[in-house]
Amino acid sequence: MSDDLQKRVLEAGVGRASARSIAARFGVGISTAIRWLRRERESGERTPRRQGKPRGSRLDAHEAFIADMIEAQKDITLQEMIACLKSECDIEIGRSMLSRGLR
């Protein structure tokens, strides 16, 4: 969606019209209008958020190293992997980030 469309929706929200009526008027989804209006009201944010595929992880560059760690020790724990990544690759990450990266 264009920046202009979001700005027009937000301007219409200034008049306190309902999100449903604004969505119908501009041809956007009701949940989209609600989300844009709420975000502006709560944080003042008026710019569109990034769309598309999520950015890569810091772990992407170490994918082969991680695979080799798992191959060498099938029952390696996340904590052991974190320690190995820190000592061998000089990368500090949390357990949840490593867990997401492995999925």
Rank of each mutant, 00 (worst) to 15 (best):
A17N: 11
D3T: 05
G52F: 12
S87F: 01
E80Y: 05
I82Y: 04
I34Q: 15
A83Y: 05
D4S: 11
L5E: 02
S21F: 01
E11Y: 09
T47S: 15
R25I: 00
H62V: 12
R58W: 08
A12H: 03
D4F: 06
A17F: 10
C89L: 08
D60A: 14
A24V: 11
F65R: 03
R35V: 02
D75S: 13
R95D: 05
R41D: 09
E71C: 06
E92H: 07
I93A: 06
G101N: 03
S87P: 00
I34G: 01
F26D: 07
I34W: 05
L85T: 10
A61T: 15
Q73Y: 07
F26S: 05
K53G: 13
A33K: 03
S18P: 01
R25L: 14
R95S: 12
A64I: 11
G44F: 05
R50K: 15
A72N: 13
V28E: 04
M97V: 10
S2G: 06
D60H: 14
A19G: 01
A67M: 12
S43H: 10
L5D: 02
S18E: 07
S31H: 13
A83I: 07
S99G: 02
I91T: 08
V9M: 01
K86T: 07
G56P: 13
S21C: 05
A23K: 02
A83H: 07
R39E: 12
L85D: 05
R100C: 03
G15W: 09
R35G: 04
V28Q: 03
D90K: 15
A83G: 08
R50F: 06
I76K: 09
G101S: 03
E42P: 06
A83V: 11
S2H: 08
E45W: 11
D4P: 00
G94R: 04
I66Q: 14
I66S: 14
R46N: 10
S31W: 08
R103N: 05
E92A: 11
A33Q: 02
K86M: 08
A19H: 02
K7F: 06
A33C: 15
D90W: 09
E80A: 15
A72C: 12
R58N: 11
D3V: 04
G13K: 00
L59G: 12
M97S: 12
E88Y: 01
V28M: 11
V9A: 01
H62F: 15
A19F: 01
M97D: 01
D3N: 09
I93F: 02
I70F: 11
S96L: 09
M69G: 00
M97C: 10
G56L: 11
G15H: 14
L59Q: 13
A12M: 04
A12Y: 01
R46C: 14
R100W: 12
R55G: 09
I22E: 03
E80I: 07
I30D: 09
R35Y: 06
E40G: 02
D68G: 02
E92C: 04
M69K: 02
E11T: 14
R38G: 01
L102C: 07
E40Q: 15
